[in-house]
Amino acid sequence: MKHHFIDRYSNLESPIHKLNTTLKLFLAVALIITTVIQSQIPAYKFVLIFAVLLIALYTSHIPLTFFLKNLLIILPFACIGGLSILFANSGDLYSSFIGIKIYHQALMNFITILEKSIISIGTIILFVSTTRFDHILKSFQDIKVPSLIVALLSFIYRYVFLVIDEFMRTKMAIVARSSRQPTLTLWSYMISRSFFGSLERGEQIFQSMKARGYNGTIKTLNNENFTTGDGIILFLCLILYALLWKL
């Protein structure tokens, strides 16, 4: 089976991929926060921020189509809730179309939400597709995310597709022996089987960790340094964010 996370280009080599992970994490979160806390985003500001994302994207050698495709897939999910904002009844009437009334303020609110969503989702896609997941985990460790959470994230990343593949194999084995699609009862047997399989795997992994000296915490080496280049990028981005804030 083919599986997709949005990090499939995280192994490329590019200036953006080479940046310090904690720096990238900081810049991404800072950009999202700066965007989200604005009450309105004028069009020129939106275009400016989106252009910055596109420049970063170009520098990172990630295909534009990949970026846009994922943005367009994720955006509707984010904005479905936003639709009720569009039809809210407030202030001056903006336009009326086949009986649906749209008010000026509501339209502005909706556009703002849309802009914020595009920038935040775009930023996350850019960050995750330019940073290897194991680097993100090490960065989490550095910024003192609880070690249990970091370890669980690492296990999810390592084992989720293994679980799905096992599940699909079980499903195929059932379908191969019956002409009908599995019922809810059969599905729940399959899920519970995979549940017990997971518990057993957990027990075996525990043994294998024990055998290599594990004593309750997972330690890793972090061989990333903060370079002068990272410093320059940090400086430039901070100026840019401050401009966006004040402009």
Partner: peptide, 24 residues
């Protein structure tokens, strides 16, 4: 104790996977 990481780790992967599977 020590078992928290491996046991909960595979459980988390299991639930994550189960969330991606559509049931009839």
């Amino acid at each position: 104790g020590e078992k928290a990481i491996p046991t909960m780790g595979v459980l988390a992967a299991f639930i994550f996977a189960a969330q991606m599977i559509n049931f009839p």
